[in-house]
Simulated assay, not measured.
Amino acid sequence: MSRTEALSSFIDSAPPGEIADVTKAIKSILGDDSVQDELSPAFQKYNEEQFTTTKLPGGSTEVLVSAYNSLGDGRYYDPDTQSSFDFDHATGKASAVQSHVLESSQEDLVKSLNKSLSTHASEHYTKSSSGVYPTASDTALALLTVANKYSPTNYWNGRWRSAYIYTPTSSTITGRINVDVHYYEDGNVRLLTSKEVNIGHVGSGAADVVRKIAAEEKKYQEDLNRAFANLSEGVFKALRRQLPITRQKIEWEKISGYRLGQDIGGGGRR
């Protein structure tokens, strides 16, 4: 593995909201600020896969960056604002906004789906962004949603991503839901989970399509809630060690001062 490949793997696995911290750590370790140029392709891959959001200059809403709305050469478009923009993958900033008219045989469906999906996202997710884009063949539509919630002061960050391909001619939806949560107070725990979605016969109206998507996402969230409850009451509870013989809680910050088998176990010196 080359140096660039190794460094790119760190970028690729960066937790939600922590890409800047990972980049800063890489620069600090290498003592080389110019490494950012070397990692430019890795930044682009990360941003497109994670559905990174950005505000257009003078705008108030977040727009998506993905492979589905890429125009090439670092430019992306947003059908909702009918504009295109340059995106700096290293800084996450948008610039050079221009008017962009969507040219697609699915234009009307894109607009109606975009409205329905936006309503669904705003009702169910905080700080969410969504977008609907024709695929390269213009025979299907990509429906993307991302919801980020960052709380670094409480040592956790999380991201919900969903991507669906809706094919009007077959009235089917295929896609994937991804959940990524990182908790790092007094430890380092990360949840990475996903679900494949395959729905047939969803109807032809935008409301029907989004209703089916909403039902799948609700079911997945309920499944996750049940799984967490089972972990808390089952596996995690079983892993918790009972109190030692002294019936005293261990003061872990003083663990280096304990004499194993004596202070912890309650035995005396022989």
Rank of each mutant, 00 (worst) to 15 (best):
S112P: 09
L113R: 00
S116I: 01
S116C: 07
L117A: 11
T119S: 10
T119K: 09
T119Q: 14
T119P: 07
A121E: 14
A121Y: 03
S122H: 09
S122F: 07
E123I: 13
H124A: 08
H124S: 11
S129P: 04
G131I: 04
G131Y: 00
Y133L: 04
Y133T: 02
T135K: 04
T135H: 04
A136R: 13
A136S: 15
S137L: 08
D138E: 08
T139L: 15
A140G: 07
A140I: 05
A140D: 10
L143A: 14
L143I: 10
L143R: 08
L144H: 02
T145E: 08
V146D: 01
V146T: 05
A147T: 05
A147K: 05
N148A: 00
K149G: 06
K149L: 09
K149S: 12
K149A: 09
Y150H: 06
Y150D: 07
Y150P: 00
S151K: 08
P152I: 11
P152S: 10
P152Q: 11
N154C: 10
Y155M: 14
W156Q: 06
W156S: 07
G158F: 02
G158K: 12
G158N: 01
R161Y: 02
R161S: 07
A163I: 01
Y164S: 11
P168H: 05
T169K: 08
S170A: 06
S171P: 01
I177H: 02
I177G: 03
N178F: 13
N178V: 11
N178C: 04
D180R: 06
V181S: 03
H182E: 01
H182W: 04
H182V: 02
H182F: 09
H182Y: 13
Y183M: 09
N188S: 11
V189P: 13
L191H: 13
L192R: 12
T193K: 15
T193P: 06
T193D: 14
E196F: 14
E196G: 11
N198Y: 11
I199N: 01
G200T: 13
V202M: 06
V202N: 00
A207Y: 00
A207P: 00
D208C: 02
R211S: 14
I213V: 12
A214K: 01
A214F: 12
E216T: 11
E217N: 12
K218R: 14
K218D: 15
K218M: 09
K218Q: 15
Y220E: 10
Y220R: 09
Y220L: 08
D223H: 07
L224Y: 12
